[in-house]
């Protein structure tokens, strides 16, 4: 689309980076990461339906250092996207929009996402897997 002579809004770089801008773009990045995770899930499920050998291959891939690294990333993305998503849903009701509340809920979001990820992996290793 041609911009012509219409006035343009200031570009992103004109603004000082604020925590909420980081959280906002992270929401989008984690969403894309989870899209890649959905591809992994599709492979894992399809392999399982394909038969025992294919499933064993998928399981050993997920259990390799590469698989564990990916799953660690996906779980972190999932809990961040989930917590910040709930924050978005609360915003949709018109709440939690003041400057102080934004800052506070940002801390809660990152903290809760980190804690949930940690709990998941502690449970995972307690299962005797890894």
């Amino acid at each position: 689309m041609k911009a012509g002579n219409r006035p343009l809004s200031p570009h992103l770089e004109a603004y000082r980076m604020l925590p909420n801008m980081v959280l906002s773009i992270t929401h989008r990045f984690t969403g894309v990461g989870l899209g890649v995770g959905a591809l992994f899930l599709t492979y894992w499920l399809t392999a399982a339906a394909y038969g025992p050998e294919a499933f064993a291959r998928a399981q050993s891939l997920m259990g390799s250092w590469f698989g564990i690294l990916c799953l660690l990333g996906f779980s972190g993305c999932l809990f961040y996207h989930l917590c910040n998503g709930v924050r978005h849903l609360i915003w949709d009701t018109g709440r939690l929009l003041s400057k102080e509340e934004l800052k506070f809920s940002a801390f809660v979001t990152v903290g809760a996402a980190g804690a949930l990820t940690l709990i998941t992996w502690i449970a995972g290793f307690a299962m005797g897997g890894g």
Binding site: A56, Q59, G63, L78, L82, G85, H88, T120, G124, G128
Partner: peptide, 23 residues
């Protein structure tokens, strides 16, 4: 979004239970 909140917790719980599972 709303539906994904409980579904995600169920999913993570289930996947943790299937770590290293055989066929």
């Amino acid at each position: 979004s709303i539906a994904m909140v409980p579904l995600s917790f169920w999913f993570v719980y289930s996947m943790v239970g299937l770590i290293g599972a055989d066929y």
